[in-house]
Design a protein around this nucleic acid. Sequence first.
DNA 1: AGCACGCCGACT
DNA 2: GTCGGCGTGCTC
Length: 819
Amino acid sequence: MANQLFVEIILPLALPGTFTYHISEQEKSQLQIGQRVSVPFGSKKLYTGIIHSFHQNKPELYKTKGIDSILDDYPLVTKFQIQFWEWMADYYMCTLGDVFRNAFPTALKWESETFIRLNDAINENYDELSEDEQILINSLGNKGLISINEASAIVNQKLVIKIVKSLWEKGWIRLDEVLKEKYSPKIERFVKVISELKSDGKKFNEAINSLKNAAKQREILLQLIVEETQSSKPIKISKFLKSFGGTHAVLNSMASKGILEIYELNTSRIGEIDNTQYEISSLTLEQEKALKIIENDFSNNKPVLLYGITSSGKTEVYIKLIEQKLKENKTVLFLLPEISLTSQMVLRIRKHFGETVGIYHSKFNQNERVELWEKTLKGDYKIIIGARSALFLPFQKLGLIIVDEEHESAYKQTDSKPFFHARDMALVLGNLFKLKVLLGSATPSLESFYNSKENKYGYAELLNRFGESKLPKIELIDLRKAMNQKEITGDISHKLRDEIQDVLNEGKQVIIFQNRRGFAPVVECMSCGHSPYCPNCDVPLTFHKFSNQIKCHYCGHSQAKPSKCSNCQSLELTTKGIGTEQIELQLNTIFPKARIARMDVDAMRRKNAYEKTIEAFENQEIDILVGTQMLAKGLDFSNVALVGVVRADSLLNFPDFRAHEKAFQLLTQVSGRAGRREEQGKVLIQTYNPDHQVLQNVTTYDYLKTVNEILYERKSFLYPPYVRLIQLTFKHIKKEKVDKVSGEFVKLMKNFLDEKHLLGPEEPSIGRIRNQFIRKVLIKIPENQSAKHIKQLVQKSLDSINTVQVYRSVRIDVDVDPH
DNA sequence: AGCACGCCGACT
DNA sequence: GTCGGCGTGCTC
């Protein structure tokens, strides 16, 4: 008898390794590595897995099961991807299943608990369905929503997945989106002249004649024709009416006469409609030089860091490099932090390269993700622009990865495993598959800067601003002095106030940055000093004046603002500290005539609020925009003459070894929002520490000095890039347990590490979140030891802790290279 | 990670 | 008496 055949399958589970299933000769002939199968696992559950490998070694410790069905007749995952996943699981100390779960689109990972429903608009032919398919469709019609598990009770159990898949592909059913769509595409109304009017002179004359008693309509028609010939951009109704005058009623009446057409568009697709090409101007000498350096280092297989200050023309260099790769018939991945995906840069690249560009957002729904996955697999795109998750697409012939804004912490995944850093993984892909990698930033991360200094990466720079534009002037305002001299009202110094007034008088706009939302961080009793705390977390609740609530920013708990102190019943409650809401209010009092808006997560919760606010600000319907981090990034406003930072100190005093680096980056970025065109903008930073070195360096734009100072600190105190870190987080509802287990872990690790390299267990500044007590342990991998070895020791210690029953319920997260 | 099983407390 | 809390063990 022939040897039995087995496959190793990757399942989306937090369990180590792959899982062994037996297959028949016939199944074997239909299977390839990377192919999708559904398999039974555990009591009754079906999972979607990926074929990892084939072998003939019968496992001795357990009985194998057979596979349920083969979902596709070709692999959806490439061998390169599997290799990459394994590398990641190993590096980030998680399971292959954790990586798979994150790297593969949810809509392609069907499980017993996946819910299906009828598609709303069905125009397919019911009679062409198989009997089983019809049965399933009928019961879906009755029940509306059922799980695949339930479906297996209705139709032939062995075939469920096949039937569901077939119906899905034919468009009869859709998978229920478990994650509710947060994003609804922004629809806008546009207008265009009926095309015959423009091509047919006779028709045109008829139309003009028919409007002889309607002067305004005639005017509008002519103006629209002018605008349409000037640019092929769709004409936004709101914008047109605003600049030209007229009302919706006029347009509607013209539309009903058959002169105009009013239509709607999803604005995220405008770039696709607009087929005017973005042509890059020829490179400046500096750009040429940078390009040469990059090419040279690429040919030596080195990644390159491109340091280019704001408006220095990084985009042009990127485009040149992309063009070169396309000529070699290679594809390109362009990574951006999520927030920048709507930026000018994306639009330009999209315009320059047209249809061959695919864009990958976290806002895309599951169907769109599947589409992008499949198109990438087929090689339909030459360029993919995306956020960190785009790293996982099944690329064909990838030749270059560009990581723009490489210093952004948004590249680090922090919400679910694997806790990877997309910039680092881009470099890993580069290394594994011999790709070129370019990192770009106006404020490179210390790691990247250090690596280029150490010659691990190449280094190119763009230090001149494009055209005439000047860097904004940055000044510090000493808050202590302002306080002493009574030159401050609330939190706005008179200097800042006066400058805002000047800018408003000139009809320019202002951005005010305050890195804390809400009205005031703390409500405090004036007689006993007590503050209300979150019942689930160890943080004081933040007061939100607008809703008159106190909220927890960690777990979302909210309650009405108490009228008296819960401790001493005193009615005298006060608020301390400042948030965006309060700044907004203060500005309203100082500038009663100014139009002021606020941009933070609270104000942006409403649908499309973000887009609306941005647009209103762009259209200069807002004079002063107050906000948090949110408005520091990726936005270009041409009319902003002044940026104010209410209090820089909170940025500097963060309990985090990256605080100074981040403060410099953030303030530099915020400053970049001021005066991006011909006029020089101004930035005013209020602070209690005007002598702080980081703030001083911000005013002089001295990136290199800052970096060298911070590198010195990092070296002295043993932090990256001089050592690598592993952070362990222990969580449990019982304090004694986290203490016990984290203490036990440290005890074990003390056998291998001295106290300089093993910190904790420590209670973090917020010691409890969502009712879970938290302890942290930080491991600094000694320079003379391999990271791999230390990770093995960590794993060994964790395994040994896991052998003790009562310890197992403590949740332990391992974060390699924490941020 | 799920999920089942099994053991204890607090409810109709 | 049962519902449901979570500790424990197992999954190819």
